[in-house]
C-alpha cells in the first residue's frame, strides 16, 4: 500500500547528492520522509520527534560508502537506531526467585491477555519443564474464567478452580496459596481488561500486584495499536509498574510502530510476540524484524552490512 521509505529516499536523495558525506540539507530532506514513514507505521508522534533528532545527529556528516546510495545509507542509519531503541534480542522472562514465581498479565480489553497467559504457561511447562498454575482474576467479562479453564485443558496446564463470587483480590490470594501448597514453579495471573484511565480498576490491579508480588508484570498490547500506544503504556507502567511488554497480533499486516512507541516511552523491554490465535503462536522478540517491518523494507540492511 505504501511505497517504502527506501524508494522515497532514493527518489529525493540520490538525485540530489553525489558521493561523500551526507550534508545537513540532504539529511533534513531525508528526515521529512523518515518522519512520514514512521507516522504511517503508527509510531507515536512524540517518539518520532525524539527519534528523528537522534538519527539526524548521526547522519549529518556520515560517509556514504561506495557500494551504496545515500538513500540506502540513511535507511541503514535509521534502522540501526531503531534496533538500538527496540532493544536486544531474547530478553527472557525473569523466573529467578523462589517458587512459586508469579507472573501478572495486564492490558486493555481484548489485547490478548488470556490467550497469551496460556501460551506462556504452555511454553514454560513444555520447554522449561516448569509446573505452572494459571488463575483468572477476570470476574467482569462474560465467560472469561471459563475461557482460561478451557485453555488449561487444551494445554495441559492446571488452572485454579473457579469459585464464583470471589473478588480478584481473593482469587489472587487463593492462587498464591494454592501454588505454594501444590508445589508449583510458576503462577500466572490473568486479569480483566481495563482502560489505562480507569483509576478504580488500575488501583485494583495494583492491589493484586501487592498481594502477589510478581516477578514479571507483563503489559499485553496489540501490535496494531495506533498513536494511543504511548498513553496506554505510560499509564500502565506508572500505575501498576510493568517489567515487560508482549506484543500480540504480529501475524497481522500492521506496521507495528506501537513497538517503538511503547519501548520508547517506558524503556521496558518487549519480551515476546504473539503470532497467532493458536497456543503455539508465541515467539521471542526480534528487534531486527520489527525494525524492518516498521520501515517497510526488505534487505537494505544486509546490503549495507556487506558493503
Amino acid at each position: 500500500m505504501f511505497d517504502t521509505l527506501q524508494e522515497r529516499l532514493s527518489g529525493i536523495l540520490d538525485k540530489l547528492t553525489g558521493r561523500g558525506a551526507l550534508s545537513e540539507a540532504d539529511v533534513d530532506t531525508a528526515m521529512r520522509e523518515v518522519r512520514r514513514a514512521l507516522l504511517e507505521a503508527d509510531v507515536a508522534l512524540d517518539v518520532v520527534r525524539g527519534f528523528i533528532d537522534k538519527v539526524k545527529e548521526r547522519a549529518v556528516g556520515a560517509e556514504v560508502v561506495k557500494s551504496v546510495t545515500p538513500g540506502q545509507m540513511v535507511v541503514k542509519i535509521v534502522h540501526d537506531a531503531m534496533v538500538e531503541i527496540l532493544g536486544s534480542e531474547g530478553s527472557a522472562l525473569n523466573l529467578r526467585a523462589s517458587p512459586p514465581v508469579p507472573i501478572l498479565m495486564v492490558g486493555l480489553q481484548g489485547s490478548g491477555k488470556t490467550t497469551t497467559t496460556a501460551k506462556i504457561a504452555k511454553r514454560l511447562q513444555e520447554r522449561e519443564k516448569r509446573k505452572v498454575l494459571m488463575a483468572s482474576l477476570d470476574t467482569r467479562r462474560p465467560a472469561a474464567q471459563e475461557q482460561l479453564a478451557i485453555l488449561g485443558t487444551q494445554t495441559g496446564v492446571e488452572t485454579l478452580p473457579i469459585i464464583k463470587g470471589q473478588t480478584p483480590i481473593e482469587i489472587a490470594k487463593r492462587a498464591m496459596s494454592e501454588a505454594r501448597r501444590g508445589g508449583f514453579d510458576v503462577v500466572m495471573l490473568d486479569t480483566a481488561g481495563r482502560l489505562h484511565i480507569d483509576e478504580e480498576l488500575l488501583a485494583e490491579a495494583a492491589a493484586v500486584r501487592d498481594i502477589a508480588k510478581p516477578n514479571e508484570t507483563l503489559l499485553v498490547a496489540d501490535a496494531l495499536t495506533g498513536q494511543d500506544a504511548v498513553n496506554l503504556a505510560k499509564s500502565f507502567d506508572e500505575k501498576i509498574g510493568i517489567t515487560g511488554i508482549v506484543l500480540t497480533r504480529i501475524d497481522g499486516d500492521g506496521r507495528g510502530g506501537a513497538a517503538l512507541s511503547m519501548r520508547g516511552v517506558t524503556g521496558k523491554p518487549i519480551k515476546l510476540m504473539g503470532t497467532g490465535e493458536k497456543l503455539d503462536g508465541l515467539e521471542d522478540f526480534h528487534p531486527q524484524r520489527i525494525a524492518g517491518r516498521i520501515l517497510g523494507m526488505g534487505d537494505v540492511v544486509s546490503l549495507v552490512e556487506k558493503a
Binding site: 500500500m1 504511517e40 507505521a41 503508527d42 486493555l108 481484548g110 496489540d222 496494531l224 495499536t225 495506533g226 498513536q227 494511543d228 496506554l232 497481522g252 499486516d253 500492521g254 506496521r255 510502530g257 506501537a258
Partner: peptide, 11 residues
Amino acid sequence: LDATTGQNAIS
C-alpha cells in the same frame, strides 16, 4: 473496529 487501532484499520 477498535478505536485503539491505528492505520491498519484502513486495510
